[in-house]
Amino acid sequence: MSALGLNLNADTLLSMTSPSLAVAASTHNAKKIYGKDDSVVYALNDVSVDFYSGQFTAIMGPSGSGKSTLMHCIAGLDELTEGSAIIDGIDLSVMNDKALTELRREKIGFIFQSFNLVPTLTADENIRLPLLLGNKKGNEEWIQRVINTVHLQDRLSHRPSELSGGQQQRVAVARALASEPRIIFADEPTGNLDSTTGGEILSFMRMAVDELKQTIVMVTHDPVAASYADRIVFLADGKVAGEMLEPTAEKVLDRMKSLGN
């Protein structure tokens, strides 16, 4: 944590453009290295980035830029080779599997591209899954509010196979929100949906940030999806390649072109 404040490189300076916001998650000099000796590949090469509470941040970059790896490492699904990943002031690198699992359960919400739900559980059980796994009741009022926000009131007893793709992703959004996590990570949440349904999901995520005061970090390569975010962090070749505030689809597209996508 000594890196904090000492490492005043360009990225850190850029992140300080919104000084009023608290940091929900961050990485410091994060490196993820695959292979050995001659065939070393840097999936992440010295990435330091902060994600702010109450913001909807998108991570963008061409394929192979390390955006998914970055998300996996901050979310405690993967380990950094060097550097640190911090969530809510806790350094993930010192945690064992059990502690990481509990951290994911209690402080993090997840929305994946597909296969988000457990087929044997109902929509309601899927939404409450992190709470059920932690043997917690959760805040019922909050859960009802989340369910109402994503319009799932009359689908709660259905199993995933009885739901459409969009409904399934809505259940996933509701699950990510249900335990009132510190931060929600979404990995191409609309990648498998048509643009109308995808837009609906993104609106719900936007609503979660604006009305429910949640923090969302979303990995995407879709400029339209990214335009729903407050801020975009661009990644290229495992390094932070700049960021953008108040993005629009056109601006994002231009920027992506310049990154060589």
């Binding site: 699904l77 599997d97 059990k98 699992t101 509990e102 994911r104 359960r105 209690e106 997840f110 994946f112 296969f115 988000n116 739900l117 457990v118 899954l129 992190p130 796994l133 932690g134 699950r175």
Partner: peptide
Amino acid sequence: LLRAVGMT
């Protein structure tokens, strides 16, 4: 998926 969302 279960492990990701917090199953120990």
